[in-house]
Amino acid sequence: MTHKAKYNLALLIFTVPTLLFFTVIVIIPILQTFQKSFFDWDGLSPATFIGLDNYTRLLDDDTFWVSLKNGLIFAFVLVVYQIGIGTLLAIALSSKGLKAHKFFRTSYFVPVVLSGVVVSQLWIAIYNADGGLINSVFAMLGFNYEQAWLSGEHTSIWAIAFSAAWHNLGIQFVLIYTAIKSIPEHLYEAAKIDGAPFWKMHWKITIPLLSETYKFCLIIAITGGLNAFQNMYVMTNGGPGNISFTLTFMMYKAAFRSGEYGYGSAAAAILVIECLLFTILINRFLAREKITY
């Protein structure tokens, strides 16, 4: 056996099991979802082929547009809060002058290890319209701005998204912090010698060199936002009405509450396409060249 043949065999042995597993767990269900989206199916009885009817119905369904919009809002909040605040915290903690690095690093990561249900319950208490923390603070400060945060048409999805962003900030923070730590020190030393101020140094060195990390962070933040389900399930159950629905919630409602698996599959198919589209766009326009030090 030649060296190349041995190499190919090793490649096969190491990759095929994972690929098979991935195909069975991910690819086949996705293909089945697309297939079922062309059927009228209640999950139990034989399915009837109805072509694109489920998709045309989606376009005429107000809940679909609300869900689509909410998914984008959710993704936006995750991106801005987790990547924005995550970057600021990571830069602050990577600075040499700051004491108690370990304490802060651990503190920022603590919410991540909490269960989503626990975090949701915590935020339900904070957002409680009758004596919750936020409304109490407003009342204490004398502001007449008390709200039903989780029931308001214009506040609900933002409030839920913020709680989710807070919950998983630690993950993005760790990714960005690790990436900053891997930037060679001499680049900063050279900038200091040239007299660059602190923020300019990070603007010109740190941020550009984090582009590959940002690519990954953006993908998980955006797909995480579009896929959001757990937070609204626990905090509002999608309501009142459909105001805090996302496409995942819509899929759940159609398939599991209404027994319309075909329609739910159509919503899921749109969600898959949406996530793929964002992933392709991010890969296409961000960090196209590999950074080496």
Partner: peptide, 19 residues
């Protein structure tokens, strides 16, 4: 009718929210 059940539950909640 499961579809009716789901819709009336969701939409009526909106009525209670001030629709």
């Amino acid at each position: 009718n499961a579809k009716f059940k789901t819709e009336i539950e969701d939409i009526t909640q909106k009525l209670f929210a001030g629709q």
